[in-house]
Design a protein around this nucleic acid. Structure first.
Length: 524
DNA sequence: TCTCGCACCTC
DNA sequence: CGAGGTGCGAG
């Protein structure tokens, strides 16, 4: 991302990059300091709650970095498209016996809409209102620390869609907008009591995983990278003659055609438009940028570092979560869901469902009332929905454990009052009500530690940096910095214990519970 | 811009 | 083998 971020010009600079230790980072990059919160006081609730020692390393970071340097694009389709590279992480430092819920969300990186012209990305306007925020709960959740640490934690099955009414629980994104995936680790230990102030969680952001959602690839370099690295795209690889023949066929030409991939490779490799100055799209002027800058520097790290290093994870307090998101939870039974509705079905079924029926549903589901609460509240955070979800829930519901989606609106969070857990019943249709998230509050995602602070700050002016301290955690192997911010608040989505038939369960935002911060708590 | 059906591929 | 993940290119 570093680069990528730059490329996109995302508003943000990336917060620090992954692997480095924040402290180290600072050393390297003075600028970093500016943005980044000081090594920060561990205030973090995270630390208090034993989340401080958690280290997260992005798998295949090198690959992510390669994409990022060009400007990562992720295809978003109505049926839902997987991300590539896949988001996989190695998590260390968890208490072996404690149960945790791992989930992801993807938040707007900034409030811009982008266009790809002249072989480069540039800002073309203001972002569309944020889509309903959804959280993807790892299918294994909740599971013990030993379980998570045993092997890579893969979010490979997470799918992205541009269908605002998506019933499958896929993460909804807007095309030509930049996003930042985030990983949330929520302690599901009963002792914490879900929804309690003590519930601990932390958020990790790998700037290099930021991407722009597209309905079709814009940058040939990206297409090439996808083809070269994604096994499912093997058929497009220009291995030798195959490609030529294939291309010729496709084009209906008798003569060999030069495979795009080949061309691209040559073309793109070196000077990506993005590189250097070119890369940065105008970032949002906001402070955000700075963090990224720091990030950028980080990007400069040696390849080795990038590769192996644990990415820096920032622990963001929930604040990082995008503001204004609502939380909804969807449990999808993988197979079933797919069978019933998914793409697999051949678009028909689901199309109908979505297109035809959806509008209504969508409307119905969108609770206008709750809508954009003014200050973007803290992100749904790892909504504890997960927490709420007990194992039993997960397990039982899903024959197999499956990923669950949550959509959260931060905005609501504010509104939420005290921590109470409520359970919502999934809609019969499986469509969860969602609210649009409040339009993005400045980009939360990025500001990692600094972000964290930023986010919070953003969402709530009052809660700025102070409240959140990002701790810098040193990531072991490589330099990584992880910052743990103590979240001011925590929200917990309510969750329905009984999974109803519908594959998905939705947690509504208002059901979220906030925990923790005084500031926020006061809000609304 | 986006959607769709397709060939080709992995699993 | 079938299910399903790919990018392609026409529409």
């Amino acid at each position: 991302m570093a680069n990528g971020g730059d490329q996109f010009g995302l508003a943000a600079g990336r917060p620090d990059s992954d692997c480095m230790d924040s402290s180290k980072e600072k050393e390297k990059n003075p600028s970093f300091t500016l943005n980044a919160p000081p090594a920060s006081p561990p205030q973090a609730e995270c630390s208090q709650q034993g989340m401080e020692g958690i280290k997260v390393f992005l798998h295949d970071r090198e690959l992510w970095t390669r994409f990022d340097e060009v400007g990562t694009e992720m295809i978003i389709t109505k049926a839902g498209r997987r991300m590539f590279p896949s988001y996989k992480v190695k998590v260390l430092g968890l208490n072996p016996k404690t149960k945790y819920i791992l989930l992801m969300d993807i938040v707007p990186a900034d409030d811009h809409r982008y266009k790809f012209a002249d072989n480069k990305w540039s800002v073309t306007g203001k972002a569309e209102p944020a889509m309903p925020g959804r959280l993807y709960v790892h299918p294994d959740s909740p599971a013990t620390g030993s379980h998570w640490s045993r092997q890579l934690v893969s979010f490979q099955k997470l799918k992205l869609t541009n269908n605002h009414l998506d019933p499958f629980g896929h993460i909804i994104l807007n095309s030509m907008h930049k996003y930042q995936p985030r990983l949330h680790i929520v302690k599901a230990d009963e002792n914490n009591g879900f929804g309690s102030k003590n519930t601990a969680f932390c958020t990790h952001v790998f700037p290099e995983t930021a991407f722009i959602g597209v309905t079709s690839y814009q940058n040939h370099k990206i297409t090439q990278l996808k083809i070269e690295n994604n096994p499912f795209a093997k058929g497009f690889r220009g291995s030798d003659d195959n490609e030529l023949h294939r291309m010729a066929k496709l084009q209906g030409k008798d003569y060999p055609v030069v495979p795009r991939s080949t061309v691209r490779q040559r073309t793109c490799t070196t000077g990506s438009p993005f590189t250097g100055e070119g890369r940065r799209l105008r970032g949002s002027p906001e402070a955000i940028c700075s963090p990224y800058d720091s990030e950028t520097s980080s990007s400069r790290r040696s390849p080795q570092e990038l590769m192996s290093g644990p990415s820096s994870h920032y622990t963001l307090s929930h604040s990082n979560l995008q503001a204004g998101q609502q939380t909804q939870v969807y449990h999808c039974s993988k197979r079933k869901a797919e069978q019933n509705c998914s793409p697999g079905n051949h678009q028909h079924p689901y199309k109908k469902a979505f297109q035809a029926g959806s509008p209504m549903e969508g409307e119905l589901y969108y609770p206008t009332s709750s809508y954009p609460p003014p200050p973007p509240p803290p992100p749904p955070g790892p909504s504890n929905p997960a927490l709420g979800l007990t194992e039993s829930t997960f397990v039982s519901d899903m024959g197999q454990r499956q990923a669950c989606m949550f959509a959260g609106s931060e905005s609501r969070i504010d509104e939420l009052n005290c921590p109470t857990w409520s359970y919502n019943c999934p809609l019969p249709t499986a469509v969860a009500p969602m609210e649009p998230y409040t339009h993005y509050a400045p980009h939360p995602p990025y500001s990692s530690s600094p972000q964290g602070s930023r986010l919070s700050a953003i969402s709530r002016p009052s809660s700025r940096m102070d409240p959140y301290h990002s701790q810098s955690t040193v990531s072991p192997p490589e330099s990584s910095h992880s910052r743990h911010l103590s979240p001011p608040l925590r929200e917990f989505p309510c969750y329905t214990p009984t999974l109803s038939p519908p594959l998905y369960h939705t947690l509504e935002t208002h059901t979220l519970i906030r925990c923790g911060l005084p500031e926020w708590s006061a809000a609304s």
